[in-house]
Computed example of a mutant assay.
Amino acid sequence: MTSQLTGVRQRADELVGESGVVTGPLKGYHHETYVLTMPGETRIVKLREPRERILWFDRRCFRSEEALLRALNGRISRIPVIHDVEGMALQVFIEGRTLKSRPWGDRRIPQPIHGQIVDLFRELARVTPDTLEVERSCEAQDRAEDGDCDDFLDRLIVFVEQQVYEKNFPAFGRLFTELGLHPEAFVHLRKNVSGLVRRDFCLLHADLHRENFVLDPHNRLWSIDWELAMLGDPLYDLATHLYLMSYPAEQAQRMAGDWAEAVGGVRPDSVRGWADDLGRILDFKRAQSVFTDVIRLSLSLRDGSNINWVRLPSAVRKLQTIMTAAAVPLGLAEIPSRSRIAGALVRYAGEGA
């Protein structure tokens, strides 16, 4: 166990004392998380801290997730409540099962859950930049003007280009190059996704996937992990949700239509041109995934001083599928064969093993 893990566990033990209970760590990539049952308390809370040496691929717009959740209390239904424990703001643990663990086939979700997700989008549309007083982590000059969806998306492209591609190029540059991922890809990406119409901005969760939805014992849907929330183009939230959920085509189409009706009912100017622009933003999500997954999948093949050969076939298939989906927006001349992808991944993994 690393010193960080020991430190977080020690803090958890100190908070609960001898008569409390600590459960964990919970499964999670970015954080080490423990569930604390406090003595004399009915609430169960979470203590979590970022793991060391974890790569982060997403822009953060609020300094404190807990401060954001406090501000959203009463405005967004079924989000974690903040409970103060010895001067620390901790999130109350939501008991239930994530949508990822539910046994539904072909990635379809039941209609009652579909409706609750649509309700969340409706509530998000009501939280506008001028009504949310929470400290931001980006300077005012670095934010897109309210309604400028083209600039909003371009700033996300800049983040991927600078913080994912360029920042990691010293370590992953050879792998990027062998897979045909050159800097010119970002020129093609901007050309293929530009031209968005103006839409009024609102609060976005920006990470609504199956593991961030918890269904409680009463079949109420809770949304968790708000650390990637931002203020911006509401259509970006829908596109991200559709991309991450991988709905069957019919349900994806229905979700998009229901989103437009719900958000448009709150703020008509927030859905202007959505049907034409949705594909462009989905193309950005596909392109973004290429750069992040090249890094993640290559790292997943390192198993201490060895290469994890068992994981290699699935990593190769997944990466080829992702690159195929993003070929047009990135202007890729060709998609590497599986043997080429496998060779590049093995060479990278072998260098670090």
Rank of each mutant, 00 (worst) to 15 (best):
K27C: 08
G28K: 04
Y29H: 14
Y29S: 12
Y29I: 14
H31M: 10
E32K: 02
E32S: 13
Y34G: 12
V35I: 15
L36A: 06
L36N: 02
M38N: 08
P39Q: 14
P39S: 14
P39C: 15
G40E: 07
G40M: 09
G40T: 13
R43M: 08
I44N: 03
R48P: 03
R51K: 12
R53E: 04
R53N: 13
R53T: 02
L55D: 03
L55V: 02
W56T: 13
W56I: 10
F57E: 01
D58Y: 04
D58G: 06
R59C: 12
R59V: 09
R60L: 14
R60D: 01
F62D: 04
R63T: 15
S64Y: 03
S64R: 02
E66V: 15
A67M: 03
A67D: 10
L69Y: 05
L69Q: 05
R70C: 13
R70E: 11
A71M: 01
L72A: 07
L72P: 06
N73S: 15
N73G: 10
G74Q: 00
G74S: 05
I76H: 01
S77E: 03
S77P: 09
R78G: 08
I79D: 00
P80W: 00
V81Q: 03
V81R: 03
V81S: 11
V81N: 04
I82G: 05
I82D: 00
I82C: 08
H83S: 10
V85S: 08
V85K: 00
A89R: 01
L90C: 11
L90F: 07
Q91I: 05
